[in-house]
């Protein structure tokens, strides 16, 4: 466990934790501009967080520990993911602790805790959000795993560092049939997982359409702040992962110098920024699909992932 590798990991964690809200602000700002609005500025999420943290915590009557702990689990799993996903460096010591399955599982664990919190309130909204979220997550997971599977075959490993390193080494992974298909599938899933359009509208409070917001309707104060912050970090981590799989350029690959770390950080910031800008623009032009259309979308992405795997067997078999 060398100093540079530990530094890289720490940079990742701290950076992700710090920049999560910024990313939310950025996407909102992009949307506002594209919709012809002024927008609240990219730093608005930080201001929101400060306000929320200053508020009094409220325990809704009848809720249990689950409700109280869920935000913390959400935050903890998100941070774990930030540590495990190679955003800045591929030589992280955390890499051996958990591979892609662990990351997927951890994120799922966070979502599950939120679902339970939604059920714990015993309101119709909480139950509704929980039920819808459960349906989505049950369907998201296969797609996610198949996409990961596709990408891990050329890399020969399910550890993310290995996958990203492989992408960096090959350079043209995203252009190969496997890579392209897998990344498309992965992107669709990330949108679903992070509650973006067309799966969930992150800004809605209409009971007919909301999913994520319905579950956290009873939260307020510091707990809500933690939740909002976590979802920002999540978005960052997942889009960052996608970005690095598509364009692994600039990532730290073991030289260990301060310069290369800085370059890597800048690169990932740029990549995430651009990617999310694209996502935001995409969100402007699409509408949320009906809840019962969601499975179709996910089935489609599952199929794409499956094709990616098959392609990887036939195309990638010479490479192994």
């Amino acid at each position: 466990m060398s100093v540079p590798s530990v530094t890289g990991t720490l940079v990742q964690i701290v950076g992700a934790a710090a920049a999560g809200p910024l990313l939310i602000g950025w996407t909102r700002q992009v949307r506002a501009k594209l919709e012809g609005r002024q927008g609240a500025g990219v730093l608005q999420p930080y201001r929101d967080l400060r306000k929320q943290f200053g508020r009094q915590s409220i325990d809704p009557i009848g809720t249990t520990m689950v409700f109280a702990v869920a935000p913390s689990i959400m935050a903890a799993t998100t941070l774990m993911a930030a540590a495990l996903v190679p955003l800045v460096t591929v030589i992280s010591p955390a890499d051996r602790i958990g591979d892609m399955f662990a990351v997927v599982g951890l994120l799922l664990l966070g979502t599950v805790s939120l679902v339970l919190a939604g059920l714990d309130t015993g309101t119709a909204f909480g139950g509704m959000g929980a039920s819808r979220m459960t349906t989505i997550l049950a369907l998201v997971e296969p797609t996610l795993l198949v996409a990961v599977f596709a990408l891990s075959i050329p890399a020969g490993s399910t550890n993310l560092a290995g996958m990203v390193a492989n992408a960096a080494r090959r350079g043209d992974l995203v252009l190969s049939p496997t890579g392209a298909l897998a990344v498309i599938a992965l992107l669709i899933v990330v949108l679903a997982e992070t509650g973006r359009l067309p799966f969930d509208n992150p800004t809605t409070h209409l009971e007919l359409t909301m999913v994520h917001e319905a579950m956290i309707l009873e939260y307020s104060g510091p707990r809500l702040a933690i939740l909002e912050w976590s979802s920002g970090v999540r978005l960052l981590v997942l889009t960052g992962l996608c970005a690095n799989l598509i364009l692994p350029w600039g990532i730290e690959r073991g030289t260990g110098s301060v310069l290369s770390l800085c370059v890597a950080t800048a690169a990932i910031a740029l990549k995430v920024g651009v990617l999310n800008g694209l996502v935001a623009s995409f969100e402007v032009v699409v509408a949320k699909v009906r809840l019962f259309k969601v499975p179709e979308l996910l089935a489609g992405s599952f199929l794409i992932g499956l094709l990616a795997v098959t392609a990887s067997y036939f195309v990638g078999s010479q490479g192994r």
């Binding site: 459960t134 349906t135 997550l137 049950a138 997971e141 296969p142 797609t143 198949v146």
Partner: peptide, 13 residues
Amino acid sequence: VGVLALTTGLGTA
């Protein structure tokens, strides 16, 4: 793999 993943998802649900 897909079946296993879907199983996990449904089992979790």
